[in-house]
């Protein structure tokens, strides 16, 4: 059920990506997709009543392994978030250029490639 909600979030983003005409809305849609994927990975790695995967001084190693949530998805998601920042910047840069050149961010008007 948790997973389903995360999936729903992903498809809301996908819907925005597919249907919205404004490029800014499309960027937002992609951001939502990215959030959903990150969230999904963390959800999969969650242990009920789990603790962060950080060993504290004096903590028993065996207890730590039993109680900790899965650290692997966290390591992947951490970089994914920062990559997301880079991607947003790239997309915004492209949109700025498009707006400057064509005076619009409406996809339906950007059809110079029409056959």
């Amino acid at each position: 059920m948790m997973y389903l909600l995360a999936l729903l979030l992903l498809f809301i983003g996908l819907y925005g990506l597919l249907v919205k005409r404004s490029l800014v809305k499309k960027i937002l849609g992609l951001l939502i997709v990215e959030h959903a994927v990150n969230l999904f990975l963390i959800l999969v790695g969650y242990r009920s009543d789990g603790l962060p995967p950080i060993l504290l001084p004096g903590e028993d190693a065996g207890e730590f392994v039993r109680a900790s949530v899965d650290p692997l998805p966290q390591a992947l998601v951490l970089t994914s978030i920062v990559i997301g920042l880079g991607l947003v910047m790239l997309m915004v840069a492209l949109s700025l250029r498009i707006h400057e050149r064509h005076g619009t961010l409406d996809c339906s008007k950007l059809n110079r490639l029409k056959g």
Binding site: L18, C107, L110, N111, L113
Partner: peptide, 18 residues
């Protein structure tokens, strides 16, 4: 037919991909 499908809209191409 191809001319009509080739709309030049980003959204449409994305739709085909999905």
């Amino acid at each position: 037919l191809l001319r009509r499908l080739h709309t030049g809209w980003l959204t449409d191409y994305l739709f085909w991909c999905f």
